[in-house]
């Protein structure tokens, strides 16, 4: 089966993804909820409307690549892969149970997960290699690489950015999840990033900025970037909210680390499904 967009034609919403994240985090007793919430709309739009994949083969050699370089948001990706049919219900239901395969950070042994990340600053370089491979073969494949803004502290990200421009990888779309937080505080407090869009532009990227929770804007942004083939790599700087979707998690870095109590879980689910 050749790769195509949303091959199973399963509709799923950002709300479905957030609900799945809460269920996983609650049953697994785990953290990183807020990091997953900030990328929900970005991934939902990508998996529904842009990524060409083969339903029967996550490793299809002509697939588009979705590289989750900020591996801490992996629960959002697991939920999408579940909708693609690559992860069965049991994988999500039994999250973090002894002997299960879905880990707390992105792991390339999971079908549909391209890179092992969470050690930050790795994924974009692997994505650059995938984009270079497609360029050398003159295929139509695109490589989407999602990096966190905190991850931009890593020097290897900028090595990759220099390389992508030098090698004219216009099939590479870097998505920056600009939620303004990293583990120990706001990005401004820790290592201020300045104007991220201007930085990528200065590195030779074709850059757009979008509201990272506005699905129509994200969709439009990917269409605009995908249509341009001027040799420049692409960057979408997505303004996002860490913890988006649950009022008491939004902009609250505690939800990088905090686990859900039964009461908090019920409140959070209530807010998410009320949307």
């Amino acid at each position: 089966m050749d790769p195509k967009i949303n091959p199973l034609l399963r509709p799923f919403s950002a709300t479905d993804i957030r609900k799945a994240i809460l269920d996983m985090a609650y049953s697994g007793g785990t953290v990183h909820i807020a990091c997953a919430f900030s990328i929900v709309e970005l991934l939902a739009v990508l998996y529904r409307k842009h990524l060409r994949v083969a339903a029967d083969n996550p490793d299809h050699p002509e697939r588009d690549y979705m590289v989750l370089s900020k591996g801490h948001g992996v629960m959002a990706q697991y939920a999408c892969l579940h909708h693609l049919g690559w992860l069965p219900d049991a994988d999500l239901r039994d999250y973090f149970k002894d002997g299960t395969r879905l880990k707390g950070l992105a792991d390339a042994h999971v079908p549909g997960v391209e890179v092992t990340s969470g050690s930050l600053g790795h994924g974009l370089s692997v994505g650059v290699g995938l984009a270079l491979a497609a360029q050398r073969r003159s295929t139509e494949q695109k490589c989407y690489a999602l990096v966190g803004d905190g991850e931009l502290n890593e020097g290897a990200v900028w090595e990759a950015a220099l390389f992508a421009a030098q090698f004219c990888l216009d099939n590479l779309i870097v998505i920056i999840d600009k939620n303004g937080f990293q583990a120990m505080g706001s990005t401004d407090e820790v290592i201020a990033l300045g104007d991220i869009a201007a930085k990528f532009a200065a590195f030779g990227f074709d850059v757009i900025e979008v509201d990272g929770h506005d699905e129509a804007a994200i969709d439009h942004g990917f269409r605009v970037l995908g249509a341009r083939t001027d040799g420049r790599p692409k960057a979408m700087v997505a303004r996002t909210v860490k913890g988006k979707g649950v009022s008491f998690m939004e902009h609250n870095n505690l939800w990088h680390y905090t686990r859900l109590s039964p009461e908090i879980y019920e409140r959070a689910v209530g807010e998410v499904i009320a949307v």
């Binding site: 370089s125 692997v126 290699g129 995938l130 984009a131 270079l132 491979a133 990759a160």
Partner: peptide, 8 residues
Amino acid sequence: GVAAGLAK
């Protein structure tokens, strides 16, 4: 990292 992507 690029080598890993190329090898994949």
